[in-house]
């Protein structure tokens, strides 16, 4: 692949995982955003957006509880999207390529968090010496520099040499395996939703999940409509419970 594109991919992945700005990485590291940028680079905006959005949907419900990352949407996107655009892969194949890298990205994140333990022990010494600057460096500068090497190098290498290898493998891939990967793309969103259910799914509240589910399955409402109705239902419950408190007291 083009050297400049590989450098760009390395930087995009570094920025998308730097986590500078809480929640900002959700945007800068989203396959959707990568799809937009790389689509522009390759002059295939629509394809880029569609592949980006399809990969994004796999990870739509993924949240990092306690800082633990279940899957890395950024690595999945930054490897699969440029290779797919370069070699004209179908969206299903791009998904098949993205999923394994989504798993691998978790290990990169674990390296980051293990190395961060060192900086906090350094920061304690700076706290002892009232060194605000030192605390700043330990909190932001050093982890970010280290992260650059953890993230930039693997992505740069994989995107640089990956395209040819991928074309070779994908050409040899039987249709049955391709079908299998597209099933994986269809099932994996369930993972994120299940994680959220684990966090907020109290038993007495579970019927609301089913209302939302079957409102779409039977009535065919779209996502925005669901958000509107869901907010109304939540508001009714909130106001009722506040009124009940008032009556009791």
């Amino acid at each position: 692949m083009n050297l400049l594109v590989s450098i760009l991919c390395g930087f995009l992945y570094f920025i998308g995982t730097s986590r500078i700005g809480y929640g900002l990485s959700t945007a800068t590291g989203s396959p959707l955003f990568y799809g937009l940028i790389l689509g522009l680079v390759y002059g295939k905006l629509t394809e880029g957006l569609i592949i980006g959005a399809t990969i994004q949907l796999i990870y739509i419900g993924i949240i990092n509880t306690g800082g633990n990352m279940p899957a890395d949407q950024s690595l999945a996107g930054i490897i699969a999207i440029p290779i797919a655009l370069q070699t004209d892969l179908s969206t299903e194949l791009a998904v098949g390529l993205a999923v394994p890298f989504g798993v691998l990205g978790v290990f990169l994140d674990q390296i980051r968090r293990i190395s961060n333990s060192y900086w906090i022990s350094q920061a304690e010494k700076h706290a002892e010496n009232l060194n605000q600057r030192g605390i700043f460096n330990c909190a932001i500068t050093y982890p970010t520099i280290l992260l650059f090497f953890i993230t930039f190098i693997p992505v740069f290498i994989i995107t640089l040499v990956g395209a040819d290898t991928v074309t070779f493998i994908m050409d040899a891939m039987p249709q049955g395996i391709i079908d299998g990967f597209s099933v994986a793309g269809g099932i994996l969103p369930a993972l994120g939703f299940a994680i959220i259910l684990l966090i907020i799914g109290k038993r007495e509240l579970m019927p609301y999940f089913f209302i939302g589910f079957f409102a779409v399955a039977y009535l065919g409402i779209n996502t925005m409509a669901a958000a509107v109705f869901g907010t109304c239902v939540a508001a009714i419950v909130l106001f009722n419970s506040i009124n009940q408190k008032k009556e009791l007291s």
Binding site: F213, T223, V233
Partner: peptide, 19 residues
């Protein structure tokens, strides 16, 4: 509680749409 209700409702809707 009401935030969880909204969250669960949306999870239901999104599950149905995107899985």
């Amino acid at each position: 509680t009401s935030a969880s209700i909204l969250g669960l409702f949306m999870m239901g809707a999104l599950s149905s749409t995107y899985i």
